[in-house]
């Protein structure tokens, strides 16, 4: 464990908690892409199946349980409890265009052709594009609530910190996992446009609005 990976995990946890609290406190999921939340929940479920097969550390297992339960709780809030506030008209990204290629690729490019490893690979590839429905929805509505931009900032930051963690681990441990690194690069690059808007607008107290 190194400081960058710990900071990444904390950033990820902060993002998940921010979103959950935003929906719970405002009793509204306006501006939130339910499709992205479903993708994130499936990312966690497919990646953390090893919860039942391998024990790495208390930290590792407890974080996995927290991520899975928070993401499923978020999906529940969006599609059931606060369904009336779900903006389905703008959450129209065709997720099959993500899931099918990602599914195919995880069968073609993986470390080991075993069910657990293919599911892990699927999860890594899916996570790199899971935010697209959310970014697409923001581009369609032309704006995002400030709390939602903070959620996206920490979510994008987490994988960026993981990239530094992988540089650290390559240099000090000779460890590197090309699948995770390439997917992590794609994932972080997808946020670049948002990061620019976040820094130039939200951090200056303006609302994030796109030229619709």
């Amino acid at each position: 464990m190194n400081i960058f990976r710990l900071a990444g995990d904390v950033s990820h946890l902060v993002a998940i908690i921010i979103l959950l609290l935003k929906i719970w406190k405002t009793r509204s999921c306006a501006g939130i892409s339910g499709k992205s939340q479903i993708l994130f929940a499936s990312v966690f479920v497919t990646r953390y199946l090893d919860l039942f097969t391998i024990f790495i550390s208390l930290y590792n297992s407890s974080m996995k349980i927290i991520y899975i339960s928070c993401s499923i709780a978020t999906v529940y809030l969006v599609y059931f409890k606060f369904k009336a506030t779900y903006d389905g008209n703008h959450d129209t990204f065709r997720v099959e265009f993500l899931v099918v290629p990602v599914g195919g690729l995880s069968f073609l490019v993986n470390h080991d052709f075993s069910p657990m490893e293919i599911l892990w690979t699927f999860s890594i590839y899916l996570e790199s594009v899971a935010i697209l429905p959310q970014l697409f929805m923001i581009s369609k509505t032309g704006e995002a609530e400030t709390i939602t931009t903070h959620y996206l900032f920490f979510l994008g930051l987490y994988r960026g910190l993981y990239l530094i963690n992988w540089i650290w681990r390559y240099y000090f441990e000779g460890f590197f996992d090309l699948i995770a690194i390439v997917a992590g690069l794609v994932q972080t690059v997808l946020y670049c446009d948002f990061f620019y808007l976040y820094v130039t607008k939200v951090l200056k107290g303006k609302k994030l609005s796109l030229p619709a």
Partner: peptide
């Protein structure tokens, strides 16, 4: 040798 099949990262 790091066992890549035992992913120790979240």
């Amino acid at each position: 040798e790091y066992n890549v099949f035992q992913h120790d990262e979240l």
